[in-house]
Design a protein around this nucleic acid. Structure first.
Lengths: 247, 247
DNA sequence: ATCTTATTTTGATTTAAATCAAATTAGAGT
DNA sequence: ACTCTAATTTGATTTAAATCAAAATAAGAT
């Protein structure tokens, strides 16, 4: 085979997906499917898409027809308020599903942008509902995923009564937990988002986030080096700040 | 038929449900089903339950097997934090589904308590998934309901940047909108919850809620008489405070 | 109805976070 | 490597909401 054609194929932005051989199977939709069923999924997840840093996966107001699972990279979702302010609604890492909000009205309710070069698997929603009818465990798992999203979002409400430092710790513990599930260190990681984006998500201003970071470092709980974070005493953080680390 | 037996039947706390003749059909799960399909639902929604004011429908940590649709009345959901504080996670009126959060881990993640004498329809979740397989439109509508819940919860994040008065208005507009959909006045209604519960839900203290009410009345936007609220200029409120009135 | 408890309102004060401002540092693009 | 822009840190000040406190009102229970 001429190497050129191979390269060309690999560089194409739409790549044939393969659930059956995907490393994300334990986190993604196919969880718990047997081999034959996972094979069926290879038809479901028709394509992979490369989304470059700064590129949008979808925008609020656009028609919805596919969910997307993050395969590699990191996404932010946000909405623009009437006054033009950007409100961050979530951060999304490999294995997490984007677009669940759009099912409600067949329209995307938020914008999704890649915070680093990323890949997503496209799942046409109509196909998912169709195949789900023949693979009940797939449908059931999908329901769990939607439900988990509800739990996760509702968890944000719990930040209501917390002060800045506590919110930030809760946020870091949550990231830590999600990194751990993906095989990365729960103690040391790089933030993909800015202080302003964290602030928007947590309902705080960027200066407050910066001060909270400084304070947590002063107190020895964490080490901050720009975007690089190290949690020095994660158990103490969990005890001190409550255990909203789980999704 | 002896009238006695009829009465006895009606007073039982578990009442045979009938979706096909229910006034809530336009809001509830059976939306858009034809007559035969709605008939099938009468098997799905096995029972109605009376829940007295102050009684719990479910508690966090308990096993999940059924969703519940509010038929009459009003519910509050909440979680207890480690420090014993109660965090309100939502208010729920007729036609709204309770328990969607519990699908995720087959365990309820919150407590649900009736704020007035209420009735709910019980929907065993396994049955719903089963019947959904034969009635795709039912399954699809269920997905929309779950998705709407995600949108609704995420909408709470948008309160992040607002101040007390704005949050309260957003809350009132949201209630107004939901009352209107149920055929009640969008301009005048009775709150079922206390200032403290509103505050908990909005991330504010009860004194702040009280002051915000007073201020809105001073400014002529609303009339407050204890739990009775009248919105004097709803369009102005919508313009001034943004339109987070929709679910 | 009356008593008792829970809820609400309002005021005075404190506190945490927002805002305003400026210097510093990091990072993307060439 | 260099430039320019974006992001971060830190300080000073203001502001909104929390807290503390007490009185007034409403709602349940008997």
């Amino acid at each position: 085979m001429p190497p050129d054609s191979l390269i060309t194929k690999k560089l194409k932005s739409n790549i044939k997906a393969s659930c059956s051989s995907c490393g994300l199977r334990e986190l993604c939709l196919p969880v718990g499917l047997d081999e034959q069923e996972a094979g069926t999924l290879d038809h479901l997840v028709s394509q992979r898409h490369k989304i470059w840093r700064g590129e949008h996966l979808h925008r609020a107001g656009l028609d919805f027809h596919s969910l997307h699972v993050v395969r590699t990279g990191f996404f932010k979702t946000y909405v623009l308020q009437e006054d033009g302010r950007e409100q961050v609604t979530g951060f999304h890492m490999p294995g997490e599903v984007l677009g669940l909000d759009a099912i409600s009205a067949d329209t995307h309710t938020c914008n999704a942008v890649a915070l680093e070069d990323s890949e997503v698997c496209e799942i046409p929603f109509a196909k998912l509902e169709g195949i789900g009818r023949t693979i009940p465990s797939l449908m059931h798992h999908f329901h769990k995923i939607m439900s988990r999203e509800i739990v996760r979002d509702r968890g944000m409400l719990l930040l209501g009564g917390m002060k800045a430092g506590e919110r930030l710790v809760a946020f870091l513990l949550n990231l830590s937990h999600r990194f751990a599930k993906r095989g990365y260190s729960p103690l040391e990681f790089n933030l993909r988002m800015t202080r302003e984006e964290i602030g928007s998500y947590l309902g705080l201003k960027l200066e407050t986030i910066s001060r909270a970071f400084s304070r947590l470092q002063e107190d020895g709980f964490i080490n901050v080096n720009n975007k690089h974070i190290r949690l020095n005493d994660i158990d103490h953080l969990r005890r001190q700040y409550g255990n909203s680390s789980c999704e």
